[in-house]
Amino acid sequence: MNQVLETAYKDSKSHYHILDGLRGVAAVMVVLFHILEIFSNGDHSKQLINHGYLAVDFFFVLSGFVIAYAYDDRWSKMSLKEFAKRRLIRLHPMIIIGMIVGAATFYFQGGNLYPMIDDVPVVTMLLIMFIGFTLIPVPPSMDIRGWVEMHPLNGPAWSLFFEYIANICYALFLRKFSNTVLIVIAFLAGGLLIHMAVTHGDIIGGWSLYPEQLRIGFTRLAYPFIAGMLLSRLIKPANIRQAFLICSILLLVVFCIPWVGGHDAKWMNGLYDSLIVILVFPLIVYLGAS
Rank of each mutant, 00 (worst) to 15 (best):
K46E: 12
I131C: 06
A84R: 02
F106S: 03
V4N: 07
V66S: 12
N41F: 15
Y210T: 15
R215T: 13
L172E: 05
L182H: 08
F161H: 06
I276R: 02
M196F: 02
M1V: 12
C256K: 03
G270M: 03
L91Y: 06
V25S: 01
I183Q: 13
L230F: 07
H200F: 07
S14L: 12
D202P: 00
L135Y: 02
G201H: 02
V280L: 13
R74D: 09
I235M: 11
R86M: 04
L48Y: 11
F39V: 07
S40K: 14
L188S: 04
G132D: 03
M142T: 01
M99R: 01
A289R: 12
P211E: 03
S76G: 15
Q242N: 15
S290E: 11
G206N: 05
D118A: 11
Y16T: 12
K176E: 11
D202L: 00
K85A: 10
V148D: 15
Y272V: 06
W158E: 01
G206H: 04
F218K: 05
V4D: 06
M229W: 06
A186K: 00
M78L: 10
A70S: 15
L160C: 05
F39P: 01
I168D: 00
K236R: 13
P224H: 14
A26H: 04
L5P: 01
